[in-house]
Write a protein that binds this DNA or RNA. Structure first.
Lengths: 329, 329
DNA sequence: CCGGGGGTTGGGAACGATCCCACACCTGAG
DNA sequence: CTCAGGTGTGGGATCGTTCCCAACCCCCGG
């Protein structure tokens, strides 16, 4: 910290201080190519004496690499971007990005939004894309030039590695728990029909229903709390003998709780309620919500890290979901 | 979309297609300097025919501007970064950044974290810094080179524009509401003592207590739900006649609700509870939480926009907070 | 008719890093 | 002793953009 110019140090400054050429300094800093141990130590010393941080812009420019990660969340409207789930993904990616000199930008992707995807592909600023709420058509419409620079939080494909929670497994655990505690008329509030993961949890539900000979009571959902309220009302009206409601999202489950309360129905006495995601507030509801964990932060971190490192990720990375039994079921 | 090369178009491609020089094209795209209307229209036509997006890296490099916005959240531990409030700020900034070719990175700033601040100042990748949970010492330790590129979500200074909610006003509204509904022994769960905004709400509380001759029952807090639970227990033990608890954060208030429920205390029958922030789930608790709004998204958007545009912002921008009366008070 | 002074244009030098390539050195085998 | 091949080094060219500056055109006043 002896020399403290007005402007940040450049590689030239480091090289000059270390008494080597810019090329050698570059090799040492980037950790690529040959360098004698003597040169290596002098360069690193000079670098942290000057507080040198490589300019990501210059680096990206010459490498043709792009300077930020784009998080593209698809949904029926731009309101998806206000979803706490998406916010968590962005925050995790932003945390990963810093050390790599990468920033994160957030974009709405209409359900069949190939145009927006094209735009992202044409933007030299974009190093990689994190797809949230990935759908099949979107995967099919993926521009060639994006290949190898995309990670999907959801379904993947041959070109697109997938990072996802095992929601089939999580749903199964929740449903077994419900069954084990004597519930026999279980309704389920699913996710949006266009979302592939909805299939998985619905399949888990249908399997249990078939195996145990239970009725299938499926309600469409959209992960929102408001929908949970409405779904509770609907379930009570259509199937008055329902003794459990499983919503595949905690906000929806909390909405269900509120809806049932409005009808004077006791939880878990009359009806058991379970959610999915284990959001922080799930532990605080009355009664505290039984749910299955969903390590969003870890998933997003893994996806962003893969993109930042530029390494080819495993085609499918699945994170386990575990049952968190509390009071509501 | 006639010409669709493998790689994104450059300014040269645009210039060539438009039949002008790179300089002229640059002037048109950047909207700086002279250009005939003829040239202007031909360049813009060529640009969107090729789907041209300027390379933020090259632009940042030559302008010496930096390519991302850093969100620096201070707190006692890196756990602040998991705070939904911080996540919301990051998401808002990431949404703003895209169109400017800016990404967002997220960093933890220890309470007296001048070193980390220095590092941010020395990073050429950083265009501007959004300070979250700003403290006075931090403001004092701000490196000179960061001047004019910082926005504070909280207190500001001569060099640092401030973007904040009117929490004094919000707190006053909540407290008046409590008083108006007959509560006379009001306890308050404050924010962290090192946070300047804590002062403001505490002052509002003390003013009401003095003016109306009420007892002062102040409990320290940290915005977490866990702390709310503990605070409820503490309040009940120390001041059994308490008839209202105001927590300056919704998660804390929900924790208070849970804590009181654990003691079999009825809300709002025995004790009224109010929060601050109006998080989405506040409407779903049992009873639904009375609170004051806190437009985090709008605040962060304003701060990020100011930084992205590079314009000098007004020294202080205050966003109103309004009372949201629900069932808990 | 000539000399400015606007509006408009293009050439070229930056910006800071990477990386290809040529070169220097050293060691050991033939 | 020479030569091959591995290790280490430095000189440019390069990425895509901005911006300074010189050159040009044209119109108008002297």
């Amino acid at each position: 910290m002896t020399t403290r110019a007005d402007r940040p140090a450049t590689l030239d400054d480091v090289a000059r201080l270390a008494g080597v050429s810019r090329s050698t300094a570059s090799r040492v800093i980037a950790g690529t190519g040959f360098a004698s141990t003597a040169a290596r130590s002098r360069v690193t010393a000079a670098a942290d004496q000057l507080g040198y941080v490589p300019d990501p812009a210059a680096r990206a420019l010459v490498r043709g690499a792009g300077v930020r990660l784009a998080v593209a969340a698809s949904g029926e409207s731009a309101a998806v971007l206000d979803d706490p789930y998406v916010e968590q993904v962005v925050a995790a990616a932003a945390r990963v990005g810093g050390p790599y000199g990468l920033g994160v930008s957030l974009h709405w992707l209409p359900l069949a939004g190939s145009t927006e995807l094209q735009r992202l592909a044409e933007d030299r600023g974009v190093r990689g894309v994190v797809l949230v709420n990935t759908t099949e058509p979107l995967l099919a419409a993926l521009p060639r030039s994006l290949r190898g620079r995309v990670a999907s939080l959801g379904v993947g494909s041959a070109d697109v590695p997938s990072f996802d929670v095992d929601n089939g497994g999580g749903a199964t655990q929740v449903l077994r728990h419900l069954y084990a505690s004597g519930r026999r008329r279980i309704a389920m509030v699913a996710g949006p029909h266009w979302l592939p993961c909805t299939q998985r949890s619905v399949r888990a539900y249908e399997r249990l229903a078939r195996d145990a000979g239970l009725p299938v009571r499926l309600l469409p959902g959209d992960f929102t709390a408001e929908r949970g309220r409405a779904a509770a009302r609907e379930a009570v009206r259509r199937w008055p003998d329902t003794d459990a409601i499983f919503a595949v999202s905690d906000p929806t489950a909390l909405g269900v709780l509120a809806g049932l309360r409005g009808h004077g129905i006791d939880v878990p006495g009359d009806v058991a309620v379970a959610g999915f995601d284990d959001i922080p507030l799930a532990a605080l509801s009355a009664p505290a919500l039984t749910t299955a964990s969903h390590p969003v932060g870890r998933i997003a971190t893994a996806a962003a890290t893969a993109l930042a490192e530029g390494a080819r990720a495993a085609p499918i990375t699945t994170f386990p979901s575990v049952l968190i039994p509390r009071e509501s079921a």
